[in-house]
Write a protein that binds this DNA or RNA. Structure first.
Lengths: 335, 335
DNA sequence: TTGTACGCGTTATCAC
DNA sequence: GTGATAACGCGTACAA
């Protein structure tokens, strides 16, 4: 039923029953100084007799701090973002902050307005977005500390990321070492990290005198991975190996390739990015690069709090990816 | 850098530049009445000249509404909860509400205190918890509307769920129809839904004059599924089919069973609950029951808002699960 | 239709 | 160490 909302006790109530002023109650609950035995006892008793707790809204009103930060991500169903949120949540609990969660996945149109609205409710924001670099100034104009996933220091916004270029280069060298020569990249152009992964792969191949073949999916999902098999594998020049933009694409791709009668890794090697939990449970298990999703979430939150506390200037921070070799990449079997 | 926080314009600022009173500004931004052409024009201009937006904190102070609801879940890495959050997020955006997200996974000890603290920042809460039924009154004592995932109407708390008992019975009958007789349940006792799934499976088996074999995992995860294979399959009496508490357990179990040389479904059928996205991409694809995670999230949020608005009384609501047949269950091959 | 004035619950700034 | 009291920014009687 709709509760009869018995208004919670206020500081005035406590002050009255303890026979002190509200200022004293405030100082007590905030632990700002010491009190005489007598008043402290009376305060303690009054507070837990009435079951008083401070109203954080009223407190925010005067301090200007909400102890809440926003986490804005693209799609919580993507385990990469799940990891980020998990990490941010953990750090937030440690530091006594709350998380205002927004999944923008379904309508990214009204993003600017939403960020502006959000920013009034929080002390700072962690943002993952596909907004074009040109619009990044939007983030600075929020006049609240922001940690962005992707380069943004040119507009004075702190950023956190994993080194996608070197990650992709690692994958590329690994595939070359296995003897592959026809290596494809199945990208997702709308994603912020697509360009650098593409570039890293290209770096590695060029060193070996090779050029990647390029394909692109229309979303970074399992389903899009399935759908891309036709284009990538059924053309005249089938690649030996396919590097996918992320693990979701890779898992979908691998599954459908097998369904189409193509053996992985015997006929084609497949790899992805992120090292999502399921990468270890597919058949074959998936070679990938751990992009440190959870660590990124933790780091982002930690840095955001430092920005809020004013103990940090904007900068860029990059985590080191880790190559994870599994069964989906192997030397090609000549038939 | 830490922004120099130029205080945002207030209603007083708008009132002054528009030459009206703050009350008029308030009425205008809340669209409560009509104005003369002249004042409306001056208001409009003053507002977007100053870039004024109302301070939601100050507004909450007076209205007692934060337009924020808490979503408290056990582990965002479990796709079941991911779905719930996705659904809740969608509905929240539609209804103009914000989501305060909490993943309690790592420390569920301080839960009661956390809920109490949270409740002061929000208009209502959506809660998934392993708290014992005896502690459910905690939720009512928050004096804020709550929607709980699981039966709780005995303490006057609205609840939403999917019918696990009939879901499990459906799976049971399916396995019996396939000719299986030695059917096992790999449960996870700490989970709220474990008992009813167990009961539903037992219902179905008893109708056929059978009794399930019981095993239990120590967490509802991929890893725990892997670890359970030894106990379940390597005993003296190997089951024909294994129903797992959820898809995560099932996928982990299936993978490790295969690694141990047991063929699925030829030697043992495997099924789970939730129909997580990856269930369609494992090898073999996983038979499961769609427990409507996303719909549960949407429904929970919708009902919560109704409770907040006082247009709904506490009750229990149950969604209908849907059996999803895939490759992991099949008639056993006699060898 | 518009203005005046008060209150929401807390913290900060002075006095004492 | 403690108490008055003025903010914080907004909504809303009540009066005009």
């Amino acid at each position: 039923m709709a509760p009869t909302t018995p208004r919670p006790p206020t500081m005035r109530d406590v002050a009255r029953t303890a026979g002190v002023s509200t200022a004293t109650v405030s100082r007590y609950v905030n632990g700002l100084q010491r009190f005489t035995e007598a008043t402290e006892a009376r305060l303690r008793e009054a507070i837990d007799q009435l079951g008083f707790t401070v109203d954080p809204v009223a407190r925010s009103m005067i301090t200007g701090r909400t102890h809440t930060v926003a986490v804005v991500i693209l799609d919580i169903r993507n385990p990469h973002f799940t990891g980020i949120v998990k990490g941010a949540n953990r750090k937030a609990q440690q530091l006594g902050y709350n998380l205002l969660f927004v999944d923008t996945g379904e309508r990214q149109s009204a993003e600017a307005g939403m960020l502006r609205e959000l920013s009034r409710r929080v002390d700072g924001l962690i943002v993952s977005s596909r907004m074009p670099d040109a619009d990044l100034s939007t983030l600075r104009d929020l006049d609240k500390p922001v940690v962005f996933f992707g380069r943004a220091s040119q507009v004075g916004v702190h950023s956190v990321s994993a080194d996608g270029r070197s990650a992709a280069a690692m994958l590329g060298r690994h595939l070359i070492d296995l003897g592959h020569r026809r290596i494809a990249y199945l990208g997702y152009g709308a994603a912020r990290w697509d360009a650098e992964r593409k570039a890293g792969l290209t770096d590695a191949l060029r060193e070996a005198g090779l050029e990647p073949m390029f394909f692109s999916a229309d979303s970074p999902t399992l389903e899009a991975g399935e759908k891309s098999v036709g284009e990538v594998l059924m053309g005249s020049a089938r690649p030996d190996a396919v590097v996918c933009y992320n693990d979701m694409l890779a898992l979908g791709f691998m599954k459908q390739a097998q369904a189409a009668g193509v053996r992985v890794p015997e006929q084609v090697s497949v790899a992805g990015f992120d090292d999502i939990p399921f990468a270890r449970f597919s058949t074959p298990t998936l070679t990938t690069v751990d992009m440190q999703s959870e660590a990124m979430g933790e780091l982002a939150l930690e840095r955001l709090i430092e920005l809020i506390d004013g103990t940090l200037d904007a900068s860029e921070e990059m985590l080191k990816p880790r190559l994870v070799l599994r069964q989906s990449t192997a030397a090609k079997v000549r038939t």
